[in-house]
Computed example of a mutant assay.
Amino acid sequence: MNFNFKEDYILENDVVRLQPLQATDYEELVKFSINEPELWSFNANGPDNPENLKKYIDKALIQKEKQLEYPFVVFDKVKNQIAGSTRFYNINLEAKHLEIGFTWYGKEFQGTSLNKNCKFLLLEFAFEKMQLERVGFRANNLNVRSINAMKSIGCFQEGIMRNFSTDAKGERIDAIVLSIIKNEWFSKIKENLKNKL
Rank of each mutant, 00 (worst) to 15 (best):
residue 1 M to A: 01
residue 2 N to S: 12
residue 4 N to D: 08
residue 8 D to E: 12
residue 9 Y to C: 03
residue 14 D to H: 14
residue 15 V to E: 12
residue 15 V to R: 15
residue 16 V to D: 02
residue 19 Q to F: 15
residue 19 Q to P: 12
residue 19 Q to C: 15
residue 23 A to P: 15
residue 27 E to Q: 15
residue 31 K to N: 09
residue 32 F to K: 14
residue 34 I to S: 04
residue 38 E to A: 13
residue 39 L to G: 04
residue 42 F to T: 04
residue 47 P to V: 14
residue 48 D to H: 13
residue 50 P to K: 07
residue 51 E to V: 12
residue 52 N to D: 09
residue 54 K to Q: 15
residue 54 K to R: 14
residue 54 K to N: 14
residue 55 K to D: 12
residue 63 Q to H: 15
residue 64 K to Y: 05
residue 67 Q to H: 13
residue 70 Y to H: 03
residue 71 P to S: 06
residue 72 F to S: 00
residue 75 F to Y: 10
residue 78 V to M: 14
residue 79 K to E: 09
residue 79 K to M: 10
residue 85 S to M: 06
residue 88 F to G: 00
residue 90 N to G: 02
residue 90 N to R: 09
residue 93 L to W: 06
residue 93 L to R: 05
residue 94 E to N: 12
residue 96 K to I: 11
residue 97 H to C: 13
residue 100 I to K: 00
residue 106 G to R: 05
residue 107 K to P: 05
residue 107 K to L: 09
residue 108 E to Y: 15
residue 110 Q to N: 04
residue 115 N to C: 03
residue 117 N to H: 00
residue 120 F to V: 01
residue 120 F to S: 06
residue 124 E to T: 11
residue 126 A to T: 00
residue 127 F to V: 01
residue 127 F to L: 06
residue 130 M to N: 01
residue 131 Q to E: 07
residue 133 E to S: 15
residue 134 R to Y: 04
residue 134 R to E: 11
residue 135 V to S: 05
residue 138 R to L: 11
residue 138 R to C: 09
residue 139 A to T: 03
residue 141 N to P: 10
residue 141 N to E: 13
residue 142 L to G: 11
residue 144 V to C: 11
residue 144 V to H: 11
residue 145 R to H: 07
residue 146 S to F: 09
residue 146 S to M: 01
residue 148 N to M: 13
residue 150 M to R: 03
residue 151 K to I: 08
residue 152 S to V: 10
residue 153 I to K: 02
residue 158 E to K: 07
residue 158 E to A: 08
residue 160 I to A: 05
residue 160 I to G: 04
residue 161 M to S: 11
residue 162 R to T: 09
residue 165 S to A: 13
residue 170 G to Q: 08
residue 170 G to S: 05
residue 173 I to Q: 03
residue 174 D to R: 11
residue 175 A to Y: 15
residue 177 V to I: 10
residue 180 I to Y: 00
residue 180 I to C: 01
residue 181 I to M: 08
residue 181 I to D: 04
residue 184 E to P: 09
residue 186 F to S: 04
residue 190 K to M: 08
residue 192 N to H: 05
